[in-house]
Design a protein around this nucleic acid. Structure first.
Lengths: 225, 225
DNA sequence: GTCTATAGGCTGATAGAC
DNA sequence: GTCTATCAGCCTATAGAC
């Protein structure tokens, strides 16, 4: 369903280095990420993305060949960074509980630096991966592999009870992605409902998830201090 | 943004009792729920919904005045049932840990009987509540209130540590909604990736979430049996 | 590299026959 | 209650000037 129809030149745009992003191409990627997160792939019109980037629709096709091409470029760039963050967690060699805490913290930090990323990913899995670029699926599985590795290490160490790593991954990622992806919703609801409290902060949620997951997976009885 | 423009007759359709659903109106609600879940509000075209229901576009406007009207009817009907389920959990008067387990089980049961509901709700909060009917927001807060009630009871009983009820609600609902809403995605990925295992079942995930949450919230040290 | 203008396709809602 | 036909609007991608 996402098959390539034509074989246009792969990179008609300019070839920039790894230096700080600037220029129309990068503006379009930033504007595209925000708009895809808010409206979804189909809902984000090229005109709206272009306007947000201070450019025109035609620039999207020039730099990325199509709307889908822009989408792919955004996802690949974001996942590349996420992967290096999470790999660092595993390479630390710390005890599983510490790695689990670090995973939550690093994932949250990535979500702060790329605030559009969680919503885009949730929309993507909701759509059955309809627009998911081929190169991105292995990266999604890579994140799953990190969680599985941490859980299996904890079970081997004897610090975690023998939980299913896949179920653990789904509950952890669900709780994290849902929180970050729905922050705009909560902010928008503040004036409409009397919550009696301000929307929760990133920091508070990170601490909550760290405790919930580590305690929820722990094997041994806990000592009161 | 979702303001009513005209004041058309509110219920031009037939007035049926509470007996088992049949007829074009109910067919459209079923087909609409499935299509909204798969494609989102904007992505679900009236023609596609009508085709799925074995009817025509014009029938949507006749029975529900508009696409938005159909959407509202679906959400209101589904939330009405969910509310009665969750109220039953609170009324049981059981210890907080048992109520938490029952909440997870009842929510999962509702998700099985209305498989489109989780995806619709996740899409809705992702869109900032853009299409959320007015009458539905109190119901969303009602679900939050049930979780808050269980958590506060557990803290008072001394069986839960003093966790923030709102953060607990967000992590629980995120993990549950994400799992149920993304089941189609996992099924679709099976042939594309070597997972080494079949996709997890509802039952396994319910048991996982029950243990994870209860252990994660528990105040006291656990005794080995 | 960037723009304007437009072609070609799809959508929600409605009018009007039965 | 249900249908067919249609209108008016919006979208992606492209052509072609600069």
């Amino acid at each position: 369903m996402a098959g390539r129809k034509t074989r246009a030149p792969l990179r008609p745009g300019p070839r920039r280095g790894a230096s700080l992003p600037a220029g129309t191409r990068e503006d379009l990627m930033r504007a595209g990420a925000e708009t895809f997160a808010e409206l979804g792939f189909d809902g984000a019109t090229t005109e709206r993305i272009a306007e947000r980037a201070g450019a025109t629709k035609a620039m999207i096709n020039y730099h990325f060949r199509s709307k889908q091409g822009l989408y792919e470029a955004i996802l690949l760039a974001t996942f590349a960074e996420l992967k290096s963050r999470l790999d660092g967690v595993r390479r630390s060699g710390s005890p599983a509980a510490d790695q689990l805490r670090a995973f939550v913290a690093e994932f949250a930090r990535a979500a702060r630096e790329h605030p559009s990323f969680p919503a885009i990913m949730v929309r993507e899995v909701l759509s059955g991966g309809k627009h998911l670029p081929e190169g991105v699926l292995p990266r999604v599985l890579g994140v799953m592999g990190v969680v599985r590795g941490i859980v299996e290490q904890g079970v081997e160490e004897g610090s975690f009870r023998p939980v299913n790593p896949l179920l653990t991954h789904l509950s952890l990622m669900g709780a994290l992605l849902f929180f970050f992806a729905t922050e705009p919703f909560r902010k928008q609801m503040v004036p409409k409902v009397r919550l009696g409290q301000a929307p929760p902060t990133y920091e508070a949620y990170v601490a909550h998830m760290q405790e919930l997951m580590v305690r929820g997976l722990e094997a041994a009885p806990r000592r009161r201090r």
